[in-house]
C-alpha cells in the first residue's frame, strides 16, 4: 500500500509536472505522437483499404497483414530502426514504428468492412445507375463505417501502447517516466508512470466508446 501512496504523492507533487522531464511535457509528447501518427496512418491505410475493398482485390494481403503485425515484436522494430539511419532523426524511430503498427488493423478492418457490405445493396446501387465513385462514397463507405471505426479504435489503443514501449528505445512520451523510474530503482515512480499510461489508454478507449454510443443508429457496430 505504501508504494501506491508514494506513487500518488509522486503524481501530485507539483515539482514533478513542469520541465522537459516533467509529467506535463511527457503527457503532451504522448498525446501529440498518438494523434499525429493516427492521422498519418489513417491517411496511408484507409484510401488503400477502401479502394481494395471496393474493387474486391488484395483481400489475402489486407487480412493477413494484421496477423503478421502481431507476430513482430514492437520493441524489436523500435531497436532495429534506432540502429538504422532513421535513428538519427530524434523521434524518427518512434514515429515510423508507430505508423507501422497502426496501419495493419486499419487496413484489415476497413477492407473487411467494405467487403461485408450487403452485396444486394451494392447491386441495387449499381442498378440505380450509380458510378463506381458514387457507390464507394454514398453506399459502401457509410455502411462500412462501424467496422472502419472499430479499426481506428484498435489502432489508437495500439498507438498508445507502442508509444509507451518507445521509451525503452529512447523515445519520448509517458513511458519515459517508467523507464526513468526503473533506472533510479524507484518503484513509486514506475508505478506512477504506469498509472498515467493506463489512464491515458483507458481515456482513449473511452472516447471511442462514447463516440460509438453517440453515433446515429445505422453507424453503430453490431458488437
Amino acid at each position: 500500500m505504501t508504494t501506491l501512496t508514494d506513487a500518488w504523492h509522486s503524481l501530485t507533487d507539483p515539482a514533478h509536472w513542469p520541465g522537459d522531464d516533467g509529467i506535463g511535457h511527457r503527457l503532451v509528447q504522448h498525446l501529440v505522437l498518438t494523434v499525429v501518427c493516427l492521422a498519418v496512418s489513417c491517411l496511408i491505410a484507409l484510401p488503400v483499404a477502401l479502394v481494395l475493398g471496393h474493387l474486391g482485390k488484395g483481400g489475402a494481403l489486407a487480412v493477413n497483414i494484421s496477423n503478421a503485425g502481431r507476430a513482430i515484436p514492437t520493441f524489436a522494430v523500435l531497436v532495429l530502426l534506432l540502429l538504422t539511419p532513421v535513428g538519427n532523426w530524434g523521434e524518427g524511430p518512434t514515429v515510423v514504428a508507430l505508423v507501422l503498427f497502426a496501419v495493419p488493423p486499419l487496413l484489415t478492418n476497413a477492407y473487411v468492412g467494405m467487403r461485408e457490405v450487403d452485396r444486394d445493396v451494392v447491386r441495387a446501387a449499381r442498378g440505380m445507375g450509380m458510378t463506381g465513385r458514387q457507390m464507394l462514397f454514398r453506399v459502401e463507405l457509410p455502411l462500412a463505417l462501424p467496422i472502419i471505426m472499430n479499426g481506428v479504435r484498435i489502432a489508437a489503443v495500439q498507438l498508445v501502447a507502442t508509444a509507451t514501449i518507445a521509451a525503452l528505445a529512447g523515445g519520448g512520451g509517458l513511458g519515459r517516466i517508467i523507464t526513468a523510474g526503473f533506472n533510479l530503482a524507484s518503484t513509486p515512480q514506475v508505478v506512477a508512470g504506469a498509472i498515467l499510461v493506463a489512464v491515458f489508454a483507458l481515456i482513449v478507449e473511452g472516447i471511442f466508446e462514447t463516440a460509438e454510443r453517440l453515433a446515429p443508429h445505422w453507424a453503430r457496430s453490431a458488437r
Binding site: 521509451a167 525503452l168 517508467i178 518503484t187 508505478v191 504506469a194 498509472i195 499510461v197 489508454a201
Partner: peptide, 18 residues
C-alpha cells in the same frame, strides 16, 4: 478483460512491480 487488454504492456509490467 477489455480494460486489462487496453493497458499497454510496459505499464502492465510496471503496475505489477510492487
Amino acid at each position: 478483460t477489455t480494460i486489462l487488454y487496453t493497458i499497454p504492456s510496459l505499464a502492465m509490467f510496471s503496475l505489477l512491480l510492487p
